[in-house]
Design a protein around this nucleic acid. Structure first.
Lengths: 202, 202
DNA sequence: CGCGTGATTGAAACCCTTCAAGTTTAGTGG
DNA sequence: CCACTAAACTTGAAGGGTTTCAATCACGCG
């Protein structure tokens, strides 16, 4: 139930851990940075950033699952990214240029997110060489991941993409409805259903 | 002719301009950084980085046009990115993790490229706050551009993708053969030919 | 229990690919 | 500068993968 989840506010547990363990930021630096970020609870289905809005945050997922997507002229959703725990997500164009957001961001599960604004990144980069290097690598890995996805879309079949997906994100197939995975893969739910039957019976 | 182009070595003209004008790096900082980069001439068709190789550079295109692509099991090329003048390109996974490159990089025209290694980026970030901020934005813009491309691939038709392409990169259609544009768009050369006829006669 | 959402299945249609042939264009050597 | 050749582009016909539309089934939740 929603209230329950909300009562158990995670108090930046994962975020703290992430910064120290993965990014290598010293605990002192982390504590110095925490005052300038805020924690937000998002109920399942809540739209965090809407296309056309001007937001000011990048989000880090403490708990739960976000969904980054767009809606085309025919009203069809196209999912660009899932963001489970320990992921960063935002409409980066919006964030950096104060342009209206091109994509939507909403909560696929009840979630806790850390909201980070420009000044957090400026301060963190100023303060910690480790953060700087880590953040740089984070962006580069995302670029790389996206090139792989582009290749999958231009170079492989729906079936191959599905098989890669379940290998890469085995947990997600438990957590999101099939039609969203189809959307992520760039096919219809019907096609995914057929692909799955084919894959199962081999 | 090759020799001629080589004789006219551009001596970091665009690179210098780029760092001062676009990245906002001070001329003194630029001059301090230049000794640690090198200029390389690439003959049309030359493979700069091959899949499986371990490279150490990120490239900035002074002059010419590079092509970033992969080759699938059936020997078919899939172009992930064109890099004309003033573009940065590399197999970033390879660069950062010293992993074997997953993609190929070659010269589509006789080109001059600036080779930048890890230490350049470390020094530049150390030295110039402007470079740091700019490089960060550069990566974020690339991420954004790639999300757009993913959307185009999962959400729009071959025809729409082609029309977007000529709007976004009008110069490239003059400079690369049609079959490469088809490859970039994720369709066959035959399909692109038909799409073009359709678009022309409307 | 009934309703809504998600998953499956079938049949027809569609977009794009494949394969094969023909045409145009561009590059090279004489 | 022409002739020759290879590469690129176009066109057609057939085939395949995926979509669309419609109907049915399964399930969780009030």
């Amino acid at each position: 139930m929603v209230k329950t989840a909300k009562q158990m506010a995670p108090e930046f547990r994962k975020f703290r851990e992430y910064l120290t363990q993965r990014a290598g930021v010293s605990p002192e630096h982390v504590e110095a940075l925490l005052p300038s970020v805020s924690l937000k609870f998002c109920k399942k289905g809540e739209v965090i950033l809407a296309q056309g809005a001007v937001g000011e945050y990048i989000y880090f997922v403490e708990q739960g699952l976000l969904r980054f997507y767009t809606i085309d002229d025919q009203g069809k959703e196209h999912i660009l990214q899932f963001a489970p725990e320990n992921w960063w997500i935002s409409d980066r164009n919006n964030f950096n240029q104060n342009q209206p957001a091109e994509f939507f961001l909403d909560a696929q599960e009840d979630s806790w997110v850390v909201q980070l604004n420009q000044s957090f990144f400026l301060k963190a980069s100023e303060m910690s060489k480790e953060f700087r290097a880590f953040h740089d690598q984070l962006l580069q890995r995302r670029i790389f991941q996206l090139y792989r996805r582009v290749y999958a879309l231009i170079g492989t079949s729906a079936r191959q993409r599905y098989e890669e997906f379940i290998k890469a994100y085995p947990d997600l197939i438990q957590r999101v409805p099939q039609w969203m995975i189809a959307s992520y893969l760039g096919i219809t739910p019907e096609s995914l259903s057929r692909v799955r039957r084919e894959v199962a019976g081999k």
